[in-house]
Design a protein around this nucleic acid. Structure first.
Lengths: 199, 199
DNA sequence: CGAGTGACGTTTTTCATATTTCGTCATTCG
DNA sequence: CGAATGACGAAATATGAAAAACGTCACTCG
């Protein structure tokens, strides 16, 4: 292992530790109430040292968002790659996204604060994430068409419609609102509805 | 016409004038920047007089929201009552709701402020409005099933799913966001998608 | 008598400034 | 030499007193 590789590994390790600490503190005290000095103290280092790995507090926020979305995407990929019918996979894909959103929002107030900021300022990473997911959906739909499971249709368009139709299961703010109110339909009902439109 | 009826008519007239003035000022200067004295001055009356018709500034806000939703509901009813296929009416219903939402949001910043407050605090009137619309949709779906246009299904469940699927066309905040971004699908595409799920 | 008002107590908002936090850099230390 | 830091200026935020807005009520006037 070269000198550079060792240094790089150490750097990654530090980045990860900082993100872990930041995530924990943000979730516990809220994003606004936690300052970089708090994060540094938690790790037994100086706040100046944090800035060797992140250019700003916002940058940490970005990185955390990226990490969470990456995890969400990996979960999605592992569902999309399964050996199962397109319908089955689309259903599990959407349920998995729903579950992740619910779990993320369970911390409520603290996480909500961070999500709102990211959405209100509509960070490009969010759009990029949605687009990646859309491509996954598009692929599953294409496969479903090939298998004769779905009717002939434009996969790109169908993917966007399917995701729009199930947006209340994946959009953090909508999920937060809808969990509270009494509803006739379950998530499964809505997914079933979306799948029918594809067939 | 009795004494009471005259008085009642005068009261309604005042209520209406106040709401008109409030709506205009709120849209021009924003809800927060407009105070009750401004509304009163605009009408050549004292602010104390406003409180003979509305118990608070918030009450005016409520009344305005109610008036707008009532207009939206009447537009919806007139579409739902038309002589046309259920598909056609459901499509026009959704497009009409979409148009109203877009037009309402066109004033952007000023109206947005009021809508956000109403949604964040989730006023019961909003839930009630959505429920009324859902009942209209349910009726159209029931008629569509009877006409053999849609498959056999639970109308109440189908109505909620259809509305959930088209929520991005009717939810003020989502519409505001989605108008900005480039999309593959048009509103018509999404409605078509929702209708397919019913057939 | 009752529609309408000016005056007034209470609550909320504004605004100036005191304090905290952010982010940089020259310097230390292993 | 480079990882790490304390000290520091700039930017943001908390604070609290002053001003404005809210909402009430005794009173006026047609």
């Amino acid at each position: 292992m070269t000198q550079e590789q060792v240094a790089e590994a150490a750097r990654r390790e530090n980045v990860c530790r900082i993100l872990d600490a930041a995530e924990r503190l943000f979730k516990h005290y809220g994003y606004a109430k936690t300052n970089v000095a708090d994060i540094a103290r938690d790790l037994g280092m100086s706040s100046a040292n944090i800035y060797r790995f992140f250019s700003s507090k916002t940058d940490i926020h970005h990185a955390l968002a990226h990490r969470m979305m990456e995890a969400s995407y990996q979960a999605a990929v592992s569902v999309a790659d399964r050996k199962a019918s397109a319908s089955e996979r689309l259903k599990d894909f959407t349920l998995s996204q729903f579950k992740i959103t619910v779990d993320t929002m369970l911390d409520e107030k603290k996480v909500h604060e961070m999500v709102v900021v990211a959405i209100e300022q509509n960070w490009p990473v969010i759009e990029a994430h949605i687009e990646r997911l859309r491509l996954l959906v598009e692929r599953m739909i294409t496969e479903g068409i090939a298998a004769g499971e779905f009717r002939e249709q434009e996969p790109a368009l169908a993917a966007e419609c399917f995701m729009s139709a199930t947006v209340i299961l994946c959009h953090p703010q909508l999920v937060a609102k809808c969990l509270a109110k009494s509803r006739i339909s379950t998530p499964e009902d809505l997914i079933e509805f979306g799948l029918r439109a594809l067939k």
